[in-house]
Design a protein around this nucleic acid. Sequence first.
DNA 1: TATAACATGTAACAAGTTACATGATTTC
DNA 2: GAAATCATGTAACTTGTTACATGTTATA
Lengths: 172, 172
Amino acid sequence: MEYRELLLLGLLRRQSMHGYQLIDFIENNLGQCTDLKKPTAYFLLDKMAAAGWIRFETSREGRRPVKRIYSLTPEGEIVFQRLLRDGLASSEPTFFWEDVSLAFLEVLDPREAASLLEMHRDLIGSRLEKVRTAPDHPGTIQWMVEHQVRFLEMELAWTDELIRRLGDTGGA
Amino acid sequence: MEYRELLLLGLLRRQSMHGYQLIDFIENNLGQCTDLKKPTAYFLLDKMAAAGWIRFETSREGRRPVKRIYSLTPEGEIVFQRLLRDGLASSEPTFFWEDVSLAFLEVLDPREAASLLEMHRDLIGSRLEKVRTAPDHPGTIQWMVEHQVRFLEMELAWTDELIRRLGDTGGA
DNA sequence: TATAACATGTAACAAGTTACATGATTTC
DNA sequence: GAAATCATGTAACTTGTTACATGTTATA
């Protein structure tokens, strides 16, 4: 699924913007939920403009580099509607590659394993705090953030349980 | 992190095997938690053999293609131990790209959105059932599977709540 | 006056996937 | 005799990242 395209189309649908603005919004507001990098964004904007999904007007302030202000075309709206429906109804498997370490946990001394997992838990904890304390977003964008919170809470509880299990083994 | 390498090293550490056997085991036993494809596996085995992490003996049954039976070298053991510890203590952000659709949910009629989310939920439900009914695995490999179960349960509850929220909006 | 922010890109690389190629053996 | 399984790979492609390039304007 072309989620990056969907994201850009959806944001442009709400408001015409230039590339830098889009990237800035995504980094500052959705940085916890996405990771769309600058060159990727510019590349996709070019691609979608070539495909006729978006078009741009150029504008210039002072002698700064020319800005391209992108907006959705009618074809872009159709693509947006399609991607939105496809994305909602579908479900791609999520793999936790980090769990490969979990699979071989028994190799380590339970105490060392527990202390490593405590570092892991702390990292999750600080991410959770960051997402929780972030300012609210308008409309259903907030639901993206909420989902991330639920996920991190689950991860925290799960890691705590693993540490407890290791404690039971090690203490026995 | 080189989780695919860690997985192969860890499995070879428990038992020497040839490539096909490894891939077969991963597909049939860890198919719900990983997605290591055949060419990737063969490529990584070559790479790790060249790096001296594993070595192989060739064996042949009848006139079938020669098998390469891989086993860990002492250097491979060191790499395994390092990757294991790094992987356990670290934590990389998990992004839910599917949630981009969620961010623009308000665009749709709540009833249509709810029915699309119901399809999404059913897909998660059937995945959950599949993981739950899979046979148990020895040792901490089972923890990988358990984590996946926890995750899918969370996803199911979350999707159900979204559908309920949409119902509240639509009914009011 | 140096640094950060504004604004847009290119080029090279990395990782992994898909589709294809090869050929023997067992099972239906 | 056809299809599935055993066993190993190659080549081309896709996707996205990192590092680099360019030049302006506001801020410390």
